[in-house]
Structure formats: structure tokens, C-alpha cells
Computed example of a mutant assay.
Amino acid sequence: MTDAAFDADRTALVLVDLQTGLDDPAYGDRSTPDAESNAARLLDAWRERDLPLAHVRHDSTEPDSPLRGDSPGFAWKPETEPRDGETVFTKRVNSGFVGTELESWLRENGCERVVLVGLTTDHCVSTTTRMAENLGFEPTVVSDATATFEREGPDGETYSAETMHRTALTHLYGEFADVATTDEVLAGL
């Protein structure tokens, strides 16, 4: 993390797609087994300090997706489920900014920095992070509170979940975001 500390009142925690549908075994092997518990630690810290936080979830338009609004997988993961009164945005694409009021909510709350956690590192977390930076926010992606799955490449090779996770973080680091651990973010609050 570039900054050891930051202005917490101007920093929003954005939780991306922490939904039960992403537990579907069809996705294959996953990186970062403690991602949800680390996201929950950050969520607890934000709640204790009454800092801005937003939950974003995916409502898929794909007919067989476990993330469709009418499927059980649309549900929040219990450890990071929003409480009554917390801000929730529902998206239909990879970015938490497209088709939602996330940008205006961040600006209305005076947020300059966003700390991003959730699923998956190389899809929705990455896309939301890139757009956050493009819109003028300062993103920090929490490496041990994000996760992804193994992927098959165009060459037919299967790339491990850990390789995909590290590669996604590397693509974001420096150009689009800081990358930090849960402990580093908590120490900066």
C-alpha cells in the first residue's frame, strides 16, 4: 500500500459480489480461502467507525447463472450481508459503476478513496477498480479479501486460481490501484 494511513472519513469500503452463487463448484478451484473472513473484518471495522460502505451485487441476465436475481445464489454471503440501512447497489455487468448510483453516492459522501473487496479479482473487482480510478477515485484492492477461480485460456491451458489472482492484482497495481492486505488497511484506519 502506497499510503500507510489515509483519511478514513473520505474512504468508502466497497464490497463486490459477495454472493452465495459464487460458491458453485462449477467455477472450479478458488484462490484466497480466507477472503470472506478478511472482508468481514474490514466490514466490522467500517461499521464500528461509522464510515461509508456500500455493498454491490450482481444480478445476472444469463439464463443459467447462479447469480440471477431469481436464484438462491443471488443471496449475500452471511458474514458480509448488509445490515438494514446500509447502502446496496445491484449491477447487471462487471462494473459496480455501470447502471448504478455508486459514483454519485461516493461523491455525495465526500469519498476520494475506495477500498475494494470481493469476488472475483479478475472480473468484477478488477472492472470496478479500473472504473473507480478512471473516474478520479483512489482505489485500494485488498489482496487477501478478494479471490478468483482457475481459468481456461484461449490456448486451452488451465491457469490456477492463485495465478489468476496474482496476475489480476499485478495488472491493477500501480496503474489503477494500490494493493494492500487486510492488516495494512486496518492499520491505516
Rank of each mutant, 00 (worst) to 15 (best):
M1A: 14
T2A: 12
A4F: 08
A5K: 10
F6P: 00
F6M: 05
D9G: 14
T11S: 13
T11N: 07
A12W: 02
V14S: 01
D17Q: 03
D17A: 02
Q19Y: 05
Q19H: 06
Q19W: 02
L22T: 01
D24N: 14
A26L: 09
Y27K: 01
D29F: 08
D29C: 07
D29Y: 07
R30D: 04
S31A: 15
P33D: 11
S37T: 14
A39R: 00
A39P: 01
A40T: 05
R41M: 08
L42Y: 11
L42P: 06
L43A: 10
D44G: 10
W46I: 08
R47Q: 10
L51N: 07
H55P: 09
V56Q: 08
D59C: 06
S60A: 13
S60H: 03
E62L: 12
E62C: 01
E62K: 12
G69P: 04
S71R: 15
A75C: 10
W76C: 08
E81S: 13
E81I: 03
P82N: 15
P82M: 14
R83F: 12
D84K: 11
G85A: 15
E86M: 10
T87Q: 15
V88D: 15
F89V: 15
T90G: 11
T90V: 15
R92H: 15
R92W: 12
V93K: 08
V98A: 11
G99W: 12
T100A: 13
L102W: 03
E103L: 08
S104H: 14
S104E: 15
W105A: 10
L106M: 11
L106V: 11
N109I: 06
G110A: 09
C111W: 05
R113W: 03
R113A: 09
L119M: 14
T120A: 10
H123L: 10
C124D: 00
C124E: 00
C124P: 00
T127M: 13
T128L: 06
T129A: 11
R130F: 09
M131H: 11
A132C: 04
E133A: 12
G136R: 08
S143Y: 00
S143R: 08
T146H: 00
T148A: 04
T148M: 02
T148I: 06
T148G: 04
F149C: 02
R151C: 02
R151A: 06
G153W: 11
P154Q: 12
E157V: 11
S160D: 09
A161H: 04
A161G: 07
R166H: 14
R166P: 00
T170Q: 13
T170P: 00
H171I: 01
H171M: 06
H171G: 02
L172P: 01
L172I: 04
E175W: 01
T181K: 09
T181L: 10
T182A: 07
T182L: 05
D183L: 01
E184Q: 15
E184S: 09
L186C: 04
G188Q: 05
G188S: 14
